[in-house]
């Protein structure tokens, strides 16, 4: 890696407290304390990914923003990441900046859409991404800081400031951080990244803009069909509007917990079987209280195994005007 100087403006502070207060006052945080992004820490992150600071990760043309590896490193340090998390953060930022991830719309929307980060592959165990009990909540450094790093990039670099370019009426607590892994080992299903064309030994990050995080709780169904009908009811209650820009590529995500997975396993149902059952119903009349589920292709229904025992629950992630983008986690050369 050629040595390239950091481009960010450096500020001197009397002490840690002075830095914290100044970053808050400048609007450079999400309201929580941050880790000081010193040049040494930022350089360590870039070294961990084997990237020069000026490597371009993507752009937001409507905001005249170009996001570099240095931008991502500064915000990942601030979020509390470790250097070995940084390749995962980079993949998440790349995914979010894909044209069809639609950064401008999904981070400016009145609806307060959130960015869900799903990690697949060996990197999960290498850095401690939680995939089981409590995986969507607090308590896991990798999950918490990687999701937060993406949101700080969105705020600080992509200019999504609440009340300015972020027009969310209420926003969402999921905008602090929303990252978890697929529990590949606890399921005999094909992992999501393999279904999306990656190797089982590759690590990936899938980023999906989500308008609503809903829950299909079903304690009573005992057949795969009945469980699918519960999930369908949740999808129809929310509806998924079509959009010219996304065409038939719209995606939605079912995060199926182990209590529901068990019934599919016993019946020998794969993820593909779930899609085969649900997809034809998306084009049926949803009834007087239902809404259209505008997913144009069967593979647009993404299925992830995650969560812990006990609660017979599937999370249904309703998209917001973007499709799920999967990027590889690139190890340093």
């Amino acid at each position: 890696m050629a040595a390239t100087a950091l481009a960010a403006e450096a500020h001197a502070f009397r002490d840690e407290e002075d830095l914290q207060e100044t970053y808050h006052a400048n609007g450079w945080t999400d309201g929580l304390p941050i880790v000081a992004p010193t040049p040494e820490r930022v350089e360590a992150f870039l070294a961990a990914a084997g990237l020069a600071p000026d490597v371009l990760l993507g752009e937001v043309p409507t905001r005249e923003v170009r996001v570099t590896a240095e931008h991502a490193a500064i915000n990942a340090v601030m979020a509390g990441c470790r250097p070995d998390y940084f390749p995962v953060v980079l993949a998440a930022v790349r995914a979010h900046l894909h044209e069809k991830a639609n950064c401008h719309s999904t981070t400016g929307t009145l609806s307060g859409a959130v960015q869900t980060v799903v990690v697949n592959g060996p990197v999960r165990s290498q850095i401690g991404i939680e995939c089981g009990a409590g995986c969507m909540g607090p308590g896991f450094r990798a999950n918490a800081s990687i999701g937060r790093a993406l949101r700080l990039v969105i705020r600080n670099v992509c200019r999504a400031i609440p009340g300015v370019l972020d027009r969310a009426s209420f926003s969402s607590p999921h905008r602090f951080s929303f990252c978890f892994g697929e529990n590949e080992e606890a399921s005999n299903w094909t992992p999501m990244h393999v279904e999306r064309g990656f190797g089982a030994n590759e690590s990936t990050v899938t980023v999906h803009s989500v308008m609503t995080v809903d829950s299909a709780v079903d304690f009573t169904s005992r057949t795969p069909e009945a469980l699918c009908d519960s999930m369908l009811a949740t999808l129809r209650r929310n509806g998924i509007a079509g959009d010219e820009f996304l065409g038939e590529d719209t995606t939605a995500m079912l995060v199926i917990g182990p209590e529901h997975q068990r019934f599919y396993d016993r019946a020998g149902w794969s993820k593909a079987d779930i899609r085969d059952y649900l997809f034809p119903k998306f084009t049926e009349d949803p009834g007087p209280n239902g809404r259209i589920v505008g997913i144009g292709k069967k593979e647009g229904l993404l299925i992830v195994a995650a969560g812990g025992d006990g609660m017979a629950q599937t999370y249904v992630l309703i998209p917001h005007l973007a499709i799920a983008i999967t990027e590889p986690v690139i190890a340093p050369a």
Binding site: H11, I74, N156, V157
Partner: peptide, 14 residues
């Protein structure tokens, strides 16, 4: 004491 150096995390002014 050496001052603590922190980097600007933004993409700068429009």
């Amino acid at each position: 004491n050496k001052p603590l150096i922190g980097l600007d995390p933004t993409s700068g002014p429009l």
